[in-house]
Design a protein around this nucleic acid. Sequence first.
DNA 1: AAATTAGTTGCGTTTATCGCAACGATGAGC
DNA 2: GCTCATCGTTGCGATAAACGCAACTAATTT
Lengths: 298, 298
Amino acid sequence: MWDNALQYFYEAANLGSMRLASDKIGVAVSSISRQIAQLESEMGIALIERGRRSIRLTEAGQLAFEYHKNQLADREALLNQIQELREVKSGRIDLAIGEGFFGPPFTALIEGFQRRNPGIAITVTSCASTEIIRMVLDDEAHIGMILHTTSEPKIRTRSAVAQPLMVLCAPGHPAAAMEALTIADLAGFDLCLPPQGFRIRGTLNHAEKRAQTWLEPRLVTTSIQMMREIAKAGRALTVLPRISALAELEEGSLVARPLLDDAIEHSTVSLIHRLGRQLEGAPARLMSVLEARLKSWS
Amino acid sequence: MWDNALQYFYEAANLGSMRLASDKIGVAVSSISRQIAQLESEMGIALIERGRRSIRLTEAGQLAFEYHKNQLADREALLNQIQELREVKSGRIDLAIGEGFFGPPFTALIEGFQRRNPGIAITVTSCASTEIIRMVLDDEAHIGMILHTTSEPKIRTRSAVAQPLMVLCAPGHPAAAMEALTIADLAGFDLCLPPQGFRIRGTLNHAEKRAQTWLEPRLVTTSIQMMREIAKAGRALTVLPRISALAELEEGSLVARPLLDDAIEHSTVSLIHRLGRQLEGAPARLMSVLEARLKSWS
DNA sequence: AAATTAGTTGCGTTTATCGCAACGATGAGC
DNA sequence: GCTCATCGTTGCGATAAACGCAACTAATTT
């Protein structure tokens, strides 16, 4: 309620007369006079000197004047920020991504997006699938990117593209000579795999169960980076989606061979967000970019 | 109008629910919901995430939240300042004083006032009577203090105390032996007077005209300080109100003798302010202090 | 001294806000 | 998976604030 009265007071003080303020604002002089009088009575102190034709501010009036001037500036700043948000010129996107997706292609995608949308801050968090789902549910992340679809309720799978797990090894590795490998084949080689609890390992577990063969990796690491390097060195095989080693596959330092298992061949990469949370602005834009790029990678 | 909606939004966001906000503010939930919705439509962007039980802020919502928080702080600061003004803890007083009033008693008065009212800034300007009146009329000074009353319209004489011009001289001066002096007596001594244009000189002029005697001062100065010093040295007489040399009279380094002239004996010291400008707060307080002290000096 | 122009006040009208109640939707518990 | 409690939303009549018009008072101007 103060807001109106202060505005009238401010304009009257600025223009030096209530009538000019009346013209500018478009309200009757009487209202202006009344609002100011009311403001004064609420503040318990006079803002303008009475018994005078022109508007002269008392000390309290000058304080109120400066106060409102600053307030206007602050409000304009807020409106600018809001405007930028609407135009997606600024904003924040929180992304939760399985570590397997990291690598030059993904980095290039993010960099390209930021170049085209300066002012948008992006946070990319890397963690396990279950954690990603939790973050999306709790709105700690706008968008999540996980292997395999999830049956979790309250999660909307926006886009899912086929992205089967592959066996990766160096070109000179014995496995590279094979067209495809079964779980049993895998068991015969040195393996580098992520620890239990990772989605990749969980998917493999199911396959092991079906094949009644249990894998015993020589090296267990949470670092996809390390898995790629071990495989490149030819010391071991690793199991990852193509997307996790796109750069290496293109330059030929790694080769990919299918892993013969129904569930694994049909595994997918999913872009998810919380059901009921309509993405808008920056997150929506990034979502569509991710969606398009993911399809081009599959 | 924004103000209300923002407040509701702020409380709802703060308490995490519209109903709690409703209890705290004392307004129906429906109004809160509506006000927030309206605010959103005016801003053109959602502030809280819909389709959710609890209140969660969007990015724009967080901006608005912070904005209003700052706004509240600013408003409280303003209210504090206003409160201080009302309690006369702060404020500004502009005083315009004839130079004749300067001296230890006046200085002590101002110092005492400032000690009892810390936070109040006082500006004491010294100038000629006509200038004092102009400053009061133009609101460049809250209070003026002049010799003699003025017939100026738009000037309100708040208080006038008798303060006849006296002849001042050193105790050993021949004039000190006289009970009282006439204008003609004055003409026989060396004189130190202010220049034409000063109120004292104007008052004397009238007396000279009546007595058909013209004074020719040996020394003319605008400095009351200098006049007092000259008189103390015994070199000349000077003409001032008692108030201008209160300290010297008390310590006995100067003596005062009446100047026999109707108008001069009835001259006064006046506290003036602009007609229609009701003094309040700090200026009013100082005015009453000045009034009381002036009477005690007369 | 009259005229002009400023701010103020009274009164009827318009607009915005409010409260109540019914509704729709979300999330917790069984 | 279903029910129930609770929270936010919407419709409608009531209420209060703000508004415009016009008459009024007061400060400047000529």
